[in-house]
């Protein structure tokens, strides 16, 4: 299974840096970077926080794909 996300796209649309997004979500900048590169999948709590921050649903940001 693969989970893709639109985090980088949404962040750039808003014109914010990884550092700013990290501060808003109370995570480290490295976590934002790992999420954007798809190296790390967030917990459901962090996924909800990200979705709430961008005013979208989780499914609009994270796309689950079965291999």
């Amino acid at each position: 299974m693969i989970v893709r996300n639109k985090l980088e796209e949404l962040r750039k649309e808003r014109g914010i840096t990884q550092e700013e997004l990290a501060e808003a979500l109370e995570v480290s900048r490295q976590t934002i970077s790992s999420l954007e590169k798809g190296r790390y999948n967030p917990s459901i709590i962090l996924a909800f926080r990200i979705a709430r921050y961008f005013g979208k649903s989780i499914e609009e940001i994270f796309i689950y794909e079965e291999e």
Binding site: V27, Y40, L46
Partner: peptide, 8 residues
Amino acid sequence: IEQKEERL
């Protein structure tokens, strides 16, 4: 933040 960071 680092202490509570889920990735860490």
